[in-house]
Amino acid sequence: MPAYKITDVVNNALPGVMTVVEIASIKIIVVKKEKQVYAFRASCPHAGTMLTDGYIDAKNCVVCPTHFYKFDIASGKNVTGEGYRLKTYTTAEADGEWYVYV
């Protein structure tokens, strides 16, 4: 998987706020929470709704604004039981730079 530098996005992101970036023609949401950075597909795997119109709850799940399905931002698992899975991407920090692997 190719690595793409997202350091500027991470450095400018407010904690817990979803930021959309386009990498390799894919819209990806980047979220910084505590010392971790998460990356996942920007649209809901069920209805295609932009997840930035939703929110991240206290259990680190992104909540889709259309049907309120919840997805764990680390694993992509659908925690409300509908059976969908959100595509997640690995992020890593190396030598002060942040990368996402797509």
Rank of each mutant, 00 (worst) to 15 (best):
M1T: 14
M1L: 12
P2S: 12
A3Y: 10
Y4V: 14
Y4W: 12
K5Q: 15
K5I: 13
I6Q: 09
T7Y: 09
T7I: 04
T7Q: 09
D8P: 00
D8I: 05
V9W: 05
V9C: 15
V10M: 02
V10S: 05
N11W: 09
N12T: 15
L14W: 00
L14G: 10
L14Q: 15
P15F: 05
P15Y: 08
G16A: 06
G16P: 05
V17K: 15
M18K: 08
T19S: 10
I23V: 13
I23F: 01
A24G: 04
S25E: 14
S25M: 09
K27G: 00
K27P: 10
I28Q: 01
I29Q: 04
V30S: 04
V30E: 05
V31Y: 03
K32R: 13
K33M: 14
K33C: 06
K33N: 10
E34T: 10
Q36R: 13
Q36D: 14
Q36I: 08
V37M: 06
V37H: 00
Y38I: 07
Y38M: 09
A39L: 04
F40E: 04
F40K: 01
R41S: 14
A42F: 05
S43M: 08
C44Y: 00
C44G: 09
P45G: 03
P45W: 02
P45N: 02
P45E: 00
H46R: 03
H46K: 05
H46M: 01
A47M: 12
L51A: 10
L51P: 09
T52C: 08
T52Y: 03
T52W: 00
T52R: 06
Y55G: 02
Y55H: 12
Y55E: 11
Y55V: 03
I56A: 03
D57S: 03
D57R: 03
A58P: 00
A58R: 11
A58M: 06
K59Q: 15
K59L: 13
N60K: 08
N60R: 07
N60W: 02
C61W: 02
C61Y: 00
V62E: 07
V62D: 02
V63P: 04
V63R: 02
V63Y: 01
V63M: 01
C64A: 01
C64M: 04
P65Q: 02
T66F: 12
T66Y: 12
T66I: 08
H67M: 01
Y69K: 03
Y69A: 11
K70M: 08
K70L: 05
K70E: 14
F71R: 04
D72H: 09
D72Y: 01
I73T: 07
A74D: 11
G76S: 06
G76V: 07
N78P: 06
N78E: 11
V79C: 09
T80A: 10
G81H: 05
G81A: 05
G81R: 06
G81Y: 06
G81Q: 02
E82G: 08
E82R: 11
G83P: 08
G83Q: 03
Y84R: 06
Y84A: 13
R85C: 14
R85G: 09
L86C: 02
T88W: 04
Y89D: 07
Y89E: 03
Y89V: 10
T90L: 14
T90E: 15
T90Q: 15
T90D: 14
T90P: 04
T91Y: 00
T91P: 09
A92S: 15
A92E: 15
A94T: 13
D95N: 15
D95A: 14
G96I: 05
G96F: 10
W98P: 11
V102N: 11
V102C: 14
V102P: 12
